[in-house]
Amino acid sequence: MVKIVTGKINSCKSTKLKKYYDDSLKGDGFIAEKHMQGNFVHYYDLIHLSTGQRIPYIVRNDFYDGKEEIIYQKGPYLFYKSAFDTVEKMVDEFICKNISPIYLDEISLLELEDKGFHKVLKKCLASNMNLCLVVREDLIDKVLNKYQIRKFEFIGD
């Protein structure tokens, strides 16, 4: 089963996914945590739910120091390759150990272009693991169609 937290940009989707995890303490995965500098997004970390480990994930190009390898760019946002490598390795372990549900924040424009968490999501779906995903409301139909997700439900407030 795929459970989805949805909403508009900046509507606390990650917070809702984290609360859903905290209420059940089942499964494992990642949520994205945004850090602001004034009115601008400075960077995002991925937070590993069961350990609280922070993984540098995205940085706004104005703040990029050139030290980490970048795998994608979307607008002013640069995505660290190491974050995707870490998530893929850990999700492989979750699948191997049958840790379910697997939480991914978020499935968005990169995945629709076969980038980002695309490969990881395909593995999770092929394994028939239960999933909890964040998907922006304007991308729901595209994501459901692309990944042929037929059985899903929305996680409420």
Results as ranks from 00 to 15, higher is better:
residue 1 M to K: 12
residue 4 I to L: 00
residue 5 V to F: 03
residue 7 G to E: 04
residue 7 G to A: 06
residue 10 N to H: 10
residue 11 S to K: 03
residue 11 S to I: 01
residue 14 S to P: 03
residue 15 T to I: 05
residue 15 T to K: 11
residue 15 T to L: 12
residue 20 Y to F: 09
residue 21 Y to L: 06
residue 21 Y to T: 08
residue 22 D to E: 14
residue 23 D to E: 15
residue 24 S to C: 11
residue 31 I to Y: 12
residue 31 I to V: 07
residue 33 E to T: 07
residue 34 K to C: 12
residue 36 M to A: 11
residue 36 M to T: 10
residue 39 N to L: 05
residue 39 N to R: 11
residue 39 N to E: 13
residue 40 F to C: 08
residue 41 V to W: 07
residue 43 Y to L: 00
residue 45 D to R: 08
residue 46 L to S: 02
residue 46 L to Y: 07
residue 47 I to A: 01
residue 48 H to Q: 02
residue 49 L to N: 06
residue 50 S to I: 09
residue 51 T to S: 10
residue 52 G to W: 02
residue 53 Q to R: 12
residue 53 Q to L: 13
residue 57 Y to E: 08
residue 58 I to K: 05
residue 58 I to D: 03
residue 59 V to S: 02
residue 59 V to E: 04
residue 60 R to H: 15
residue 61 N to R: 13
residue 62 D to P: 00
residue 63 F to T: 04
residue 64 Y to P: 01
residue 64 Y to M: 01
residue 64 Y to G: 01
residue 66 G to C: 04
residue 66 G to I: 04
residue 68 E to M: 07
residue 69 E to G: 01
residue 70 I to H: 00
residue 72 Y to H: 02
residue 72 Y to W: 10
residue 72 Y to A: 02
residue 74 K to S: 12
residue 76 P to D: 06
residue 78 L to Y: 03
residue 81 K to A: 13
residue 82 S to N: 11
residue 83 A to G: 02
residue 85 D to V: 11
residue 87 V to I: 15
residue 88 E to T: 15
residue 88 E to F: 14
residue 88 E to V: 12
residue 90 M to R: 15
residue 90 M to E: 14
residue 92 D to V: 05
residue 93 E to G: 13
residue 95 I to A: 05
residue 97 K to Y: 11
residue 97 K to A: 13
residue 99 I to A: 01
residue 100 S to T: 15
residue 100 S to A: 13
residue 100 S to Y: 10
residue 101 P to F: 08
residue 101 P to V: 00
residue 102 I to H: 01
residue 102 I to G: 02
residue 103 Y to V: 04
residue 103 Y to C: 03
residue 103 Y to T: 06
residue 106 E to L: 06
residue 107 I to S: 02
residue 118 H to R: 05
residue 120 V to F: 10
residue 120 V to W: 07
residue 122 K to Q: 12
residue 125 L to W: 07
residue 126 A to T: 10
residue 126 A to M: 11
residue 129 M to C: 14
residue 129 M to R: 12
residue 130 N to E: 14
residue 130 N to M: 11
residue 131 L to V: 06
residue 134 V to Y: 05
residue 136 R to P: 00
residue 136 R to E: 09
residue 137 E to L: 08
residue 137 E to H: 11
residue 139 L to P: 00
residue 139 L to C: 03
residue 140 I to S: 02
residue 140 I to Q: 04
residue 140 I to C: 03
residue 144 L to F: 06
residue 145 N to K: 12
residue 146 K to A: 07
residue 148 Q to A: 08
residue 148 Q to L: 06
residue 149 I to R: 09
residue 150 R to S: 09
residue 150 R to K: 15
residue 152 F to Y: 10
residue 152 F to C: 04
residue 154 F to M: 08
residue 157 D to H: 14
